[in-house]
Each structure stands twice: as C-alpha cells, then as structure tokens.
C-alpha cells in the first residue's frame, strides 16, 4: 500500500512539472524599429505584425510600446516585413534585410530636413507649371 501511495505521489509530481513554465532572463541584441509622426510624436500602442522571410502569416503580432518601438529577434536571414497600423489609417510597411549574423544589413535614421524637402517639392511644382505654361504659349503662337 505504501509503495502504491509513493508511486501515485510520484506520478502527480511528474504531472505538476509538466504544467510548470520555466523562464530564463538574458540580454539579446534585438532589431528595433522606432515609429514617429513628423512632429516626433511617438506612434505608441499601435498594432503591428511581423513576417519572417517567406512567411504567409505573421510570426509575431502586438502593439508598439510607449515610445513607438517594435522589437524582435530574427532567427533567420532574409527580408523581414513589419507592418504597423493605427485605427485612423496611419501606419507603415517596413522591410528589414537581415544578414547571416542575424543583424540588420543597414540601419536607417529618420529623414531630417523637412523644410528642405518642402522647398524641393515647391520648386518641382513651379517647374511643372512653368513647363505647362511654356507648352500652352508655344501652341497658341
């Protein structure tokens, strides 16, 4: 009887181990994508989906953190795709090329010089309308 109880206790102990969740704590180099509005406001707490190379469905889903960051640890080389959405239609579709060392092939900084870009855009618009005006005048002459 004693052996039977011991055996039963051992069986239950094994079952308890099966339900235990072990964890480790370590520090790894993850890929970090930071999303922000042009006024530098963080794209925080918005939905994201991460697709590994050739993945048909997302490998990881979640929400950006308070600073608008998406972090993931790639486990294979190739093109990783990160899609981020807000309910009001803002978002981005970013591709990150991961090399064999599982690091991004290149890092990207947010484009600066917004005033310079606006000036370029305005110049292009005036060039287009200048060309239209020239074309119309040459036709009427």
């Amino acid at each position: 009887m004693r052996y039977a109880i011991c055996l039963l206790a051992l069986c239950f102990a094994t079952l308890a181990v099966a339900h235990e969740l072990v964890h480790t704590i370590s520090q790894d180099d993850s890929v970090v994508i930071t999303l922000a509005y042009p006024d530098h406001g963080a794209f925080s707490y918005e939905t994201y989906e991460i697709f590994g190379p050739d993945d048909a469905s997302p490998r990881l889903t979640g929400r950006t953190d308070a600073y608008g960051r998406v972090k993931f640890l790639p486990d294979r080389a190739g093109r990783w795709r990160i899609r981020v959405f807000s309910e009001d239609g803002h978002g981005a579709d970013v591709t990150v090329e991961i090399d064999r060392k599982l690091r991004p092939k290149s890092t990207v900084t947010a484009p600066g010089g917004r005033i310079g870009r606006i000036a370029i855009g305005v110049a292009i618009i005036f060039c287009v309308f200048g060309a239209v005006s020239f074309f119309l005048r040459s036709r009427t002459k």
């Binding site: 509005y37 006024d39 963080a42 305005v122 618009i125 309308f129």
Partner: peptide, 21 residues
Amino acid sequence: AVVTALVFVLMMIVVPLPGGT
C-alpha cells in the same frame, strides 16, 4: 501653381492632435 504649392506645403505641415495622432 502658387495655390498648388500652398496645398503641398499645408499637407506637409503636421499638427499633433490629442490622443497621439
């Protein structure tokens, strides 16, 4: 041309709104 340029500039100037958008 001037008004189209104005439209372009207005669309490039982003104003933050309450709620993080």
